[in-house]
């Protein structure tokens, strides 16, 4: 943490990334979003020995040691975002609350597909949830973001940040035109714990059902607030244990042996 060179590099990355600023590209029903955090990540990778060689082994190692704590400041902000909306969340209908369990669908579909694709312990990070910020922090704390699990969660997080809105915008319109769901059910499902993804899905639905637009927006927003609150707790006590269990089952089914233990197991807490 006393690595001045590392912090100087980081500071330069932040300034460059923020000066480039956010850019969004409208494509059909959604937008592709490029945020400063993405440039910071990319240029950060470029500073490592394979490319510019500004950050050496020591910098890379120190940076990964610090990552877990850097996430806590963001999580404090996350909590303070949810807090003011709590009274509305508490007033939400039981339908909204029960619907949250649908988020566990992620695990049931994600884990088998991940193992089929040939992913190993990356599966745990990538398929335990929809990989928004609290999930990144959780995996970071349990396994470290430089572990296989960490690479999994970071990969899905970044994919979601860049393509999430366009994906959800498209999926909502495809689902409502091809699957027998009521627009309210699709609106509720849109609240996955990411405001931008929810907005994209709700936007497509309101465009298709303009006379229900208000109700659709209300269901989407309420469900999203709820996911923001319970998503983390659900991941800790249900999603993550379920993922570990299912991963072991699927792994044994495909490879016939037990999976290797987590490389971060020694630090597991």
């Amino acid at each position: 943490m006393y690595n001045i060179k590392l912090h100087a590099i980081i500071l330069a990355l932040i300034i460059v990334a923020e000066l480039i600023g956010a850019h969004t590209f409208k494509i059909g029903v959604g937008t592709i979003v490029l945020l400063p955090m993405l440039y910071a990540l990319m240029i950060g990778i470029l500073t490592t020995p394979k490319f510019l060689n500004l950050s050496g082994k020591k910098e890379m190692h120190d940076a990964s040691a610090l990552l877990g704590i850097t996430l806590m400041l963001l999580m404090a902000r996350y909590g303070t975002l949810v807090g003011p909306t709590l009274p509305k969340i508490i007033a939400a209908s039981p339908a909204l609350i029960l619907q949250e369990f649908g988020n566990l669908g992620t695990v049931l579909i994600g884990v088998p597909v991940a193992v089929l694709l040939g992913l190993k312990r990356e599966t745990i990070g990538a398929a335990h949830s929809i990989a928004r910020e609290p999930n990144v922090a959780l995996i970071g704390e349990r396994f470290g973001l430089d572990s296989s699990e960490g690479r999994g969660v970071m990969g899905v997080y970044i994919a979601g940040t860049v393509f999430g809105t366009i994906f959800f915008g498209l999926m909502a319109s495809i689902a409502s035109s091809t699957l027998p769901f009521h627009p309210y059910a699709l609106a509720m499902a849109a609240g996955v714990g990411s405001a931008s993804m929810m907005t994209a899905a709700v936007g497509s639905l309101s465009a298709m059902y303009p006379d229900m637009a208000n109700q659709i927006a209300a269901f989407g927003a309420a469900s999203n607030m709820l996911s923001g609150l319970d998503g983390l707790y659900m991941s800790i006590w249900m999603g993550l244990p379920m993922t570990e269990w299912l991963y072991k089952k699927c792994y044994r089914m495909r490879y016939g042996t037990a999976p290797e233990a987590s490389e971060a197991g020694k630090e597991e807490k």
């Binding site: 619907q99 669908g105 597909v113 040939g118 990989a131 990969g155 994919a159 499902a189």
Partner: peptide, 25 residues
Amino acid sequence: RIVVLACVVFTGTYIGSAIIAQAIL
């Protein structure tokens, strides 16, 4: 692989939630 999985994860979450929401509503 992770990008493909991300698409599956997003779809799984969305459809999973929609099924339960539909049933409850």
